[in-house]
Amino acid sequence: MVNKVILLGRLTADPELRQTPNNISVTSFTVAVNRPFTKGAERQADFIDCVAWRNSAEFVSRYFTKGKPILVEGRLQVRSYEDKQGNKRRAYEVVCDNVSFVEGTRPDGPSGTYAAPAAPAAPAPAADTGVAYSNGDVGDFQEVDGYDDLPF
């Protein structure tokens, strides 16, 4: 059986580090994950509760704040409990096994907001050889003899 959850989203609030009576670090947070977008439709997101323990909890509370992207790997856990009115309830949350920064993000100024790195500059155009590779003309290609030298 497999119970594996991978989320890529943004924190909805600043995580708050707490300690259990046995001095174990824990933090709970919610990750907003965008649903697949359909042209012409309104964007939607799912808000998924997560809990991190020990070093992961300390890492999240130290380096992540509201709005920052986060990658969470863990497992789905379902807890049953009784509310104050005596009703039986269920809570679904992702127990984090691994939490990490989203690759390709970096701090952008003193506000601490994150932005994707700038795209590299386009290479300088090559000298005009009269060959247009983007037009899809098969005459742009030439046949290669001797397939014995190919590395695959």
Score class of each variant (00 low, 15 high):
V72R: 00
Y92Q: 12
T113R: 08
F101L: 05
D108N: 11
A91L: 15
R54P: 11
A119I: 03
P107D: 15
P110T: 08
A121I: 05
E143A: 01
D140S: 13
V72Y: 05
F101A: 06
E103C: 07
P125F: 00
K68R: 02
K68Q: 13
S56V: 10
F101I: 01
R79A: 14
V60Q: 01
V95Q: 15
N55D: 15
D128Q: 02
D145E: 14
K68M: 15
K66S: 03
S80F: 09
E103A: 08
S134Q: 06
A119E: 14
E143T: 00
S61K: 02
R62W: 04
Y63C: 11
Y133H: 09
V60F: 02
D137P: 12
L71N: 12
E58V: 06
K88E: 14
A122K: 00
V78D: 10
D108Y: 05
P123V: 02
D137H: 04
A122M: 06
Q142I: 03
A124T: 01
Y81G: 11
D140G: 08
P110G: 12
Y63F: 07
D128C: 13
D97R: 01
F141L: 11
G130P: 07
P123H: 01
Y92N: 10
F59D: 07
N87C: 10
A57M: 04
V60E: 06
A121S: 10
E103D: 15
S100R: 00
A122G: 11
D97F: 07
N87I: 00
G112H: 01
E93S: 10
L71R: 10
S100Q: 09
V144M: 12
N98E: 15
D128F: 11
C96K: 03
R54F: 13
Q85F: 03
A119G: 05
G112M: 07
Y133P: 14
A115D: 09
R62S: 13
Y114H: 08
